[in-house]
């Protein structure tokens, strides 16, 4: 089954304001990312320096088979991809977070198979939550973080995606990072 038309359609839907399109995209992107990861990680050393962003790029290329010269489209895709990446990582972390907080309801049956220390999953989850709180205060700053770190965009690309100057991107990023750090250390 060729996912390409689906993805393109979903991207269009997204642009038109259909927020649910994101949900639908996740399993598709997930599938692609998984395959890519498998491919890349055959080399042990590569695993250590893995850039999720590079994978997202490739996934994009595979999913949307032709070059998309349309800046807006590309930018948009990476914006979505960044958001998706964030969703996927957080979701994965949530599901595999060890239930040390008592009441141990659901099973972490994969826990035994994954070398996944608890602190790691807590980290990303806390970051995600802090980022959501930041977005409530100042959406653009949260977006900058997302695009730069989850999406792997350069300052240039982020500026273009958000329609601001590169300098502004820098300022936004600095403040956002400080804020996030304060939030995360405060609640720790």
């Amino acid at each position: 089954m060729d996912p390409t038309p689906q993805v393109t359609q979903l991207l269009r839907d997204l642009r038109l304001g259909d927020a649910q399109a994101v949900e639908a995209l996740i399993p598709i992107v997930y599938g692609e990312l998984r395959k890519l990861a498998a491919h890349y990680l055959r080399d042990e050393r590569a695993a250590l320096t893995l850039q999720p962003t590079a994978l997202v790029n490739e996934a994009y290329i595979r999913l949307v088979a032709q070059d998309m010269p349309d800046w807006e489209g590309r930018s948009h895709f990476f914006g979505v991809a960044a958001h998706l990446m964030r969703q996927i990582l957080v979701d994965h972390a949530r599901r595999h977070r060890s239930q040390k907080r008592g009441g141990g309801v659901a099973a972490v049956t994969l826990e035994e198979a994954i070398a996944f220390a608890p602190s790691k999953s807590d980290d990303i989850i806390a970051l995600d939550e802090a980022l959501t709180r930041l977005a409530a205060e100042d959406e653009r700053k949260a977006r900058v973080i997302e695009l730069r770190f989850f999406g792997g965009m350069t300052a240039d690309e982020a500026a273009k995606a958000l329609n601001i100057s590169v300098a502004t991107v820098g300022r936004e990023q600095r403040l956002a990072e400080a804020w996030l750090h304060r939030e995360l250390t405060r609640s720790a």
């Binding site: 990861a37 695993a47 893995l50 999720p52 990582l89 994965h92 972390a93 994954i114 996944f116 790691k120």
Partner: peptide
């Protein structure tokens, strides 16, 4: 987080 995720997948 990304590393862990990709390792898992």
């Amino acid at each position: 987080a990304a590393t862990a995720f990709f390792e898992a997948t």
